[in-house]
Amino acid sequence: MQSAGSAAEGASTNGALTGGSILGEPSDLVRLCLDELVYVKLRGERELVGRLHGYDQHLNMVVGDAEETVMSTEVDEETFEQIVRTRKRKLPLVFVRGDTLILISPLFRQSGASR
């Protein structure tokens, strides 16, 4: 729970920002992603592509038929070249804790389609 002061601050921001845009608030975009393919970037150089089946206000999520990509970069000791390794795995149905999430982007509409 937030203190009354900060809650009011957040609420007034919400109210003021609703005018003039198709989306009233950021979570509306996530709602539009339900049952759609999404790209999710997580902390620790992880990415998921899968179908969004559920989420809550913390951005905890359930993603189905997901493919996870984990990237790790190593520096070659001699050439100082950066080697990027990616590991992929399939996750049939997974709950993702929201605090690791950095961004989420729908894959069903391409750049510019929303305007």
Partner: peptide, 10 residues
């Protein structure tokens, strides 16, 4: 808070 994923039975 330590959890990253929970793999669920589909």
């Amino acid at each position: 808070s330590c959890v990253r994923y929970v793999h669920l039975p589909p």
